[in-house]
Structures are given as structure tokens and as C-alpha cells.
């Protein structure tokens, strides 16, 4: 359940950024999560309110944007979206694909009051 650590880190970053901007409270957090990042969105959504309690993020909404990973096939050169590292190239069946991106785990912005 490392999502608890990640949620803690998320709230700390959000509180620091919001306070620096002179905000009183955070209403929404916009996150970018890679499709292949080692974090379960549902677990993160479960942990977030627990960690946010008692901070200026309490009651805020978590908005997740899933960033797709892209793969390049060494055999046919085709590019495709990768949802599963073990899935072959949809065009020619080649495997493995060279994968780029999809590991993002980033706090993009906050909506504050």
C-alpha cells in the first residue's frame, strides 16, 4: 500500500504550493498519472482524504489524468499505445516493444480559494 506514502507526498506538495501562493484552501488537485506507473488510482483516491484530513486540502477533489504510454515495434516500426508491457505490437505481433512514457506521477495544478 505505497499509495499511502504517495498520498502523503501529494498532500505535502499541495499544501506547500498552495500556502506559497497565499491560498486559504485547496478545492481540487489535478494529477497526471502514467498508465504504467506503479500506483493504483483507486488506492490513491482511498488514501487521499485520510491524509488530507486536518490540512487545507481537506475536502478537496482529486482529478486524475491518465497519461498513456507509447510503444515502438522494432520489427515493423509501428507506434501504438501500450496498456500492457507484455502485449505484442497490434500491427505485426512483434514483441517486445520499446516503450516511452507512462510512468508519470505528477501534481500538475491546484484549484484554490
Amino acid at each position: 500500500m505505497h499509495e499511502l506514502s504517495i498520498a502523503t507526498s501529494l498532500v505535502e506538495t499541495a499544501v506547500r504550493s498552495a500556502e506559497k501562493a497565499g491560498a486559504c484552501s485547496v478545492t481540487r488537485l489535478h494529477l497526471r498519472l502514467g498508465a504504467l506507473a506503479g500506483v493504483e488510482p483507486e488506492s490513491l483516491e482511498f488514501c487521499f482524504p485520510v491524509v488530507a484530513k486536518g490540512t487545507i486540502c481537506e475536502g478537496a477533489e482529486l482529478r486524475l489524468e491518465i497519461v498513456p504510454a507509447s510503444g515502438c515495434c522494432a520489427r515493423c516500426g509501428g507506434r501504438s499505445e501500450v496498456r500492457d508491457l507484455l502485449a505484442p505490437c497490434p500491427a505485426c505481433g512483434g514483441w517486445p516493444l520499446s516503450v516511452e512514457g507512462g510512468r508519470e506521477m505528477e501534481l500538475d495544478s491546484l484549484e484554490v480559494t
Binding site: S9, L10, T13, A14, A23, E106, S109, L110, E111
Partner: peptide, 9 residues
């Protein structure tokens, strides 16, 4: 009301 953060978690 928008604070840009763009920071890795």
C-alpha cells in the same frame, strides 16, 4: 484560483 505545481509526487 489556479496554482501551477508541475512537480513529481
Amino acid at each position: 484560483g489556479i496554482v501551477r505545481v508541475e512537480q513529481a509526487l
